[in-house]
Design a protein around this nucleic acid. Structure first.
Lengths: 335, 335
DNA sequence: TTGTAGGCGTTATCAG
DNA sequence: CTGATAACGCCTACAA
């Protein structure tokens, strides 16, 4: 394993000169002749500066950390894709963290393993101890997630309002004439369930249904939820799922049980993952700007970091959700 | 930002003692009293050792790098999930790399950004310059992918044989009576296409169809491929897709065009992603042990790394594919 | 049981 | 234009 001194020896110069050549701030600071000798030596030795040593002295790691849950869910996978692309564009590396307890993320910052940390939070406006743990001038925490407006925001974030998305879905169903809608939830008393109840007018009833994770995968849970809803809640003519994955499971269950969608029961998803247009029938769902939020806020921070020199603040950003009507919703059957 | 000296000062001891307490090899080396003082000081200062400094002196980064393409594809996302879980289990961090040119991966190793690098390769048995770039005793490269048996393996790998999987799919279709099958490929002259041609008996014809990426997403490409195949190749009664994502697109296109699956046309996927059981109809496909390969080989290496001290070698491993028959295949229509 | 000193590989500052 | 030299923060002999 060759270090800077090996290269220096091979080129017959000092380590300082090698460093100058390789970091090449001002080209004029070193003569063309030695410059070439150094480059040759580095090349033939296969030399690369140690990231650790460099980070130690520079105080930067050229690393972006992404903290998120459910990487297997297509919705989050897309955010990952976006972050990956931006990291590459700026010559950074991408560190992946499960969205575990704040403790782990804090130590990530304190150990200075990343300069930028993108954090998916549900909801985004809860006290953020991780952001408070920022120490170095170069460290930035970007919070991304749905905003719940429960408390004033102490730090900037990139967000959207699920209230808006859920309302659009509920009103869409109400407009079609549905009066009794089951909300397919992962766990009891979720945020979105609350929004659905808020959005329902006097002539609409929202019936929450939930199932603990257990041994099922997410699609399987969606299927189980759909069956539970129709069996336990007579009169339900539409299912509003917490996410597209559940909705896909619901579609599957209904198909298996011979219940026509949207003829007998309508189904609405959430997030508009890439599968939604291809389901059977194509899924009516709400597009959520997660990937866009990650993309915009991360890019803004990276650009600031690459030009500016002092502390960098992510700009706050709120984008809109959008109802995407496809073929899984229609008027309820006229009995 | 507090360092080890701050903690030492706060506790009234030397930095060496702090280090000893925090790394706590042999508990007996430091008295209980000072131990507690140090711990308290570290706690109240929010001290975490700098990863860079530690990596510099230890020569290890406690980081696993995963190099892969198509993170948004459910098949690879699952491998990511698995790697993430193992990394966490062993207290490691996970660095994500696009499976770019070898150059970037080599510099990853040379810069010592990761101790272990898991590499998805297609096929696995091509000359591996990245593995050859390993320098430190602590660095390990794990190659995972389908084996093509084109050349003898110079390094160990975790693999499976797509020849086996494709053959099972082809024979399944042949057994049902299909005589003309389109192979839905991403690009011309892929490995799997070759295998399909090899596996076809005298009474079966394989017709390769392909479409360049263009602006379509993968599902959309699958749909386009299916339409192209049926339109351009009369007499085709079955579609064998290169992966489940294409197959899902194919199912969608056929449904839209009013072609019954499996009544008129059969469809077979590849990989058995989590969506396969829930498609419409449920997809007959070939399970590929990618996640299992990553899981086993990575775990083996991590365990070796945590006990053993010298150079660690991944053990070679070959697992089997498995045909999973669901509802998207049947006998061809009897005209 | 604890402290002192040297070095890990770089970069930056300051002389030359 | 180039070369010593001093950090960066930590760990680990070795000495006390």
């Amino acid at each position: 394993m060759s270090n800077i001194r090996d290269v220096a020896d091979a080129a017959g110069v000092s380590p300082a000169t090698v460093s100058r050549v390789l970091n090449g701030k001002a080209t004029s600071l070193v003569s063309e002749a030695t410059r070439e000798r150094v480059l040759d030596a580095a090349q033939s030795l296969g030399y690369h500066p140690s990231a650790a040593a460099r980070a130690l002295v520079a105080g930067r790691t050229d690393t972006i950390a992404l903290a998120t849950t459910n990487i297997h869910d297509p919705h989050y996978a897309r955010a990952l894709d976006v972050a990956q692309a931006i990291a590459e564009e700026f010559g950074y590396h991408l560190l992946l963290m499960p969205d575990a307890d704040d403790t782990r993320l804090q130590s990530l910052l304190r150990e200075r393993r990343a300069d930028v940390i993108v954090r998916l939070r549900y909801p985004v406006d809860t006290a953020d101890e991780v952001a408070a743990a920022v120490v170095s001038e170069e460290q930035v925490v970007i919070a991304v997630g749905p905003i719940d407006r429960q408390m004033p925001l102490s730090t900037p974030c990139a967000c959207w309002d699920d209230r808006e998305g859920i309302r659009a879905a509920v009103e869409h169903l109400a407009g079609l004439g549905h009066r009794r809608v089951a909300f397919l939830a992962g766990r009891p008393a979720q945020r979105k369930e609350r929004y659905a109840l808020e959005a329902a007018g006097a002539d609409m009833t929202i019936v929450p249904v939930c199932i603990e994770p257990g041994s099922l995968d997410d699609v399987g849970r969606g299927a189980a939820l759909a069956r539970l809803a129709l069996q336990r809640e007579p009169g339900v003519t539409a299912l509003l799922a917490q996410n597209d994955t559940f909705a896909l499971g619901a579609l599957h269950a209904l198909r298996e049980d011979g219940i026509a969608v949207p003829g007998q029961v309508s189904v609405v998803g959430y997030n508009d993952t890439f599968l939604a247009p291809y389901s059977c029938p194509p899924l009516t769902t709400v597009r959520t700007p997660l990937a866009e939020c990650v993309s915009r806020s991360l890019r803004q921070v990276m650009e600031a970091l690459s030009t500016q020199h002092g502390a960098v603040q992510p700009q706050s950003l709120q984008l809109h959700t959008e109802l995407v009507v496809r073929a899984s919703t229609a008027c309820p059957p006229t009995t």
